[in-house]
Amino acid sequence: MAIIVEKYQLGMVRTNCYLIYNDETSEVIIVDPADNAKMIEQLIDEKNLNLQAILLTHGHFDHILAANELRDIYQVPIVAHEAENQILADPSLNLSIGMGGEPCIVKADRFVKDGEVLDLLHTKVKVLHTPGHTAGGVCYLFIKEKLMLSGDTLFEESVGRTDFPTGSMSTLVHSIKEKLMVLEDEIIVYPGHEGETSIIHERNFNPYIR
Results as ranks from 00 to 15, higher is better:
residue 163 D to T: 10
residue 124 K to G: 02
residue 136 G to Q: 09
residue 149 L to Q: 02
residue 91 P to E: 10
residue 41 E to R: 02
residue 171 T to N: 15
residue 44 I to F: 11
residue 181 M to Y: 00
residue 46 E to H: 06
residue 39 M to I: 14
residue 112 V to N: 07
residue 35 D to I: 05
residue 18 Y to Q: 09
residue 73 I to L: 08
residue 188 I to W: 02
residue 59 G to T: 07
residue 28 V to D: 03
residue 151 G to P: 00
residue 41 E to M: 12
residue 50 N to L: 15
residue 9 Q to Y: 03
residue 167 G to D: 08
residue 190 Y to V: 12
residue 84 E to C: 13
residue 167 G to I: 12
residue 102 E to V: 06
residue 180 L to H: 02
residue 191 P to A: 04
residue 145 E to W: 02
residue 34 A to M: 09
residue 150 S to W: 11
residue 58 H to G: 10
residue 92 S to K: 15
residue 52 Q to G: 00
residue 92 S to M: 13
residue 79 V to L: 10
residue 44 I to E: 12
residue 63 H to I: 05
residue 103 P to K: 15
residue 46 E to G: 05
residue 197 T to Y: 11
residue 113 K to P: 00
residue 45 D to Y: 13
residue 69 E to A: 14
residue 5 V to I: 12
residue 22 N to T: 01
residue 45 D to S: 08
residue 157 E to F: 05
residue 11 G to M: 10
residue 186 E to M: 11
residue 71 R to L: 01
residue 205 F to V: 04
residue 201 H to F: 14
residue 140 Y to D: 01
residue 79 V to T: 03
residue 21 Y to D: 12
residue 150 S to V: 09
residue 16 N to Y: 11
residue 116 E to I: 03
residue 104 C to L: 12
residue 97 I to P: 01
residue 159 V to C: 01
residue 109 D to Y: 07
residue 66 A to R: 07
residue 171 T to W: 13
residue 16 N to Q: 09
residue 106 V to D: 07
residue 44 I to D: 10
residue 185 D to G: 02
residue 144 K to P: 00
residue 38 K to H: 12
residue 154 L to V: 06
residue 72 D to H: 10
residue 125 V to N: 00
residue 69 E to H: 11
residue 25 T to A: 06
residue 155 F to Y: 15
residue 125 V to E: 01
residue 155 F to H: 08
residue 162 T to D: 11
residue 126 K to S: 03
residue 115 G to T: 10
residue 202 E to W: 03
residue 135 A to W: 08
residue 114 D to W: 14
residue 12 M to P: 01
residue 134 T to L: 14
residue 101 G to F: 10
residue 204 N to M: 14
residue 117 V to P: 00
residue 120 L to Y: 11
residue 157 E to P: 01
residue 1 M to N: 09
residue 167 G to L: 13
residue 133 H to R: 05
residue 147 L to V: 06
residue 86 Q to G: 04
residue 38 K to F: 13
residue 41 E to Y: 06
residue 105 I to H: 08
residue 11 G to E: 12
residue 10 L to Y: 06
residue 100 G to M: 14
residue 109 D to E: 13
residue 194 E to W: 14
residue 54 I to T: 01
residue 97 I to R: 07
residue 118 L to Q: 07
residue 52 Q to K: 11
residue 113 K to N: 02
residue 24 E to V: 15
residue 206 N to E: 12
residue 64 I to V: 05
residue 48 N to I: 10
residue 163 D to L: 04
residue 140 Y to W: 10
residue 19 L to A: 07
residue 100 G to T: 08
residue 10 L to N: 08
residue 107 K to I: 12
residue 182 V to A: 06
residue 96 S to G: 00
residue 165 P to N: 14
residue 209 I to D: 00
residue 121 L to G: 00
residue 97 I to F: 03
residue 162 T to P: 00
residue 141 L to S: 00
residue 50 N to V: 15
residue 126 K to Q: 13
